[in-house]
């Protein structure tokens, strides 16, 4: 691979789009991912139909993977990490976890996020009751074709509760951000459940509904108006069990009443934590973390996706909770910035 290659770390939506944009301009790419396959969260976690396209993740993101994997000028290294990164823009030396080295003109970090682990909110029953699941598990039930069911005994639920903001917007566990997409994803999942199981009622427990921009009518309103999903303004205190069904306890704040409601399935709308590797990534690439633990991105006015190290760029959920569409756009923008950065410095040198 030529010295002119650009290193892309992470092969999720952001990294796939950056890699594709780079080769489209004729630049070779070295794409490194620690996972055994490309695709990032939508593929590795088996998401179902994506917001807002409605396309299956395996088709939409799978298409992006195929495009990158079959390209002769993209070297794809899975099950690989970057352990060393030295040099200056235009001439970086990259050390890989298998000991090999490569040269690169610039690097784009597209290392994404880590799903919040619901066992960190034990009061909401995940890990204690099998029928308390996460949005990721529901996505998997849908994408695998198995359908919505209660893991305990496989029955179809008659009543489902979705709890929003699990692992987001919570000082108790040091997560002071909004994960941005989980309201919309939850409304989408609620409609899918109602579609598949018309007899099943779906309730969403919320503090705020953040179906921003064009997601308002397409997801929030549609779920209420066409799918009769019910929204209740309450943050649940605890999820327990009466031996047969799950029991949700809380305060319905609008009627100022305690609630104790039985459910068959409780879904945690889990948030997007900073990637657990971020400290290591920051140290390896010599870039800073912002105060929540995501990779720090410079203001965009001078150029997209810049970090505080020249020649190193970031894109996607590595920089904070992001949607797929935005991650893709940021991947392309960072590709342009990296090309310009690598060229400019190479010309000076």
């Amino acid at each position: 691979m030529s010295d002119g290659a650009i290193l892309v770390v992470g092969g999720g939506p952001a990294g796939l789009s950056a890699a594709h944009a780079l080769v489209a301009t004729g630049r070779p790419v070295l794409l490194v991912d620690k996972a055994g396959r490309l695709g990032g969260a939508p593929i590795l976690s088996g998401y179902a139909k994506l917001v807002p396209s409605g396309e299956w993740a395996r088709d939409a993101i799978g298409g992006m993977v195929a495009r990158v994997q079959s390209h002769p000028r993209i070297e794809v290294l899975t099950d690989t990490r970057v352990t060393g990164f030295r040099g200056t823009p235009g001439a970086f030396e990259v050390t890989l976890s298998d000991g090999r080295t490569r040269r690169a003109g610039a690097a784009i970090l597209c290392t994404g996020f880590t799903h919040f682990d619901s066992v960190n909110k034990p009061e909401w029953g995940f890990g204690t009751y099998p029928d308390v699941v996460t949005t990721t598990q529901v996505e998997q039930m849908l994408s695998s074709g198995r359908g919505i069911h209660c893991p305990s005994d496989g029955r179809a639920p008659e009543r489902v509760a979705i709890l929003l903001c699990v692992g987001s917007r919570d000082r108790q566990i040091g997560r002071e951000w909004c994960s941005k997409i989980c309201c919309t994803v939850s409304a989408n999942i609620a409609m899918e459940i109602r579609e598949a199981l018309p007899q099943c009622s779906v309730y969403i427990y919320y503090m705020d509904i953040r179906t921003f921009g064009l997601y308002e009518d397409k997801y929030y309103w549609q779920s209420q108006e066409e799918y009769r999903v019910k929204y209740i303004k309450a943050r649940i205190a605890e999820v327990t069990s009466d031996g047969r069904r799950l029991v949700l306890k809380g305060e319905d704040t609008l009627v100022k009443r305690p609630i104790t409601i039985p459910f068959d399935l409780v879904v945690h709308a889990i948030g997007m934590d900073p990637n657990v590797d971020n400290r290591e990534i920051a140290a390896t690439f010599g870039v800073a973390l912002e105060r929540h633990g995501y990779l720090q991105k410079a203001p965009s006015y001078a150029g997209s996706g810049m970090t505080d190290r020249a020649g190193v760029f970031v894109a996607g959920a590595a920089t904070g909770p992001e949607t797929i569409d935005d991650s893709i756009a940021q991947g392309q923008a960072a590709a342009i910035a990296a090309l310009a950065g690598a060229q400019r410095t190479a010309a000076i040198a």
């Binding site: 503090m207 305060e251 704040t253």
Partner: peptide
């Protein structure tokens, strides 16, 4: 932000629903 977590965790509220810190 009026989420109600205090009220539904509250010892006194469990006995007297009119005791409502959130409200």
């Amino acid at each position: 932000w009026q989420c109600g977590s205090c009220t539904n965790a509250c010892t006194v509220n469990a006995i007297n629903p009119d005791f409502n810190p959130r409200y």
